[in-house]
């Protein structure tokens, strides 16, 4: 597999790996293509419903998947850390793959999971603080298609 140096670096030394006790939000997405799994945990500060103010101050993830999936999760976690929720909601899979200097074509689908699972964690946070209305506007994991 021809992976970029950045991918290999994030794969060999993934940042922000782990779980989180009492996370403000958690999100898990599965990859319908090959059956992989990614879970993100976020801590938010300040814990407000103002998307421009609330920031992801801490982030952790766990991944069951290929090298690309692990690198994607690591890169996505770095990109989301310290950002406001509105900034993170704007993050796309392309931002993550660009950050990794690209992925082989057959691995592009692995890039979905990272941002989706973080968005799912944000949805979870917003729901927990009583803002389902905001949560519903965010696309998290793709819905099962069968």
């Amino acid at each position: 597999m021809q992976y970029s140096q950045k991918v290999m670096d994030h794969f060999m030394n993934p940042r922000n790996v782990g779980e989180m006790q009492d996370a403000d939000g958690t999100g898990t997405c599965g990859n319908p293509v090959c059956g992989d799994l990614m879970t993100f945990y976020v801590r938010i500060e300040p814990r407000t419903d103002e998307l421009e103010k609330a920031r992801i101050c801490e982030i952790r993830f766990k991944t069951f998947g290929c090298g690309a999936a692990i690198a994607v999760a690591s890169m996505a976690s770095e990109m989301a850390k310290g950002k406001t929720l509105s900034q993170v909601i704007d993050l796309s899979r392309n931002d993550v793959t660009d950050g990794l200097d690209g992925l082989p074509p057959v691995k592009m689908h692995c890039s979905n999971l990272g941002v989706q699972a973080i968005h799912e964690a944000i949805k979870d946070y917003l729901t927990k603080i009583g803002r389902q209305d905001l949560a519903e506007k965010i696309r998290g994991c793709p819905k099962e298609e069968h």
């Binding site: 597999m1 293509v33 090959c34 059956g35 992989d36 998947g65 290929c66 690309a68 999936a69 057959v106 689908h109 692995c110």
Partner: peptide, 11 residues
């Protein structure tokens, strides 16, 4: 034999 190693993404 992982799906992730096959070009077809099937296990």
């Amino acid at each position: 034999g992982s799906a992730c190693t096959s070009g077809s993404l099937e296990a």
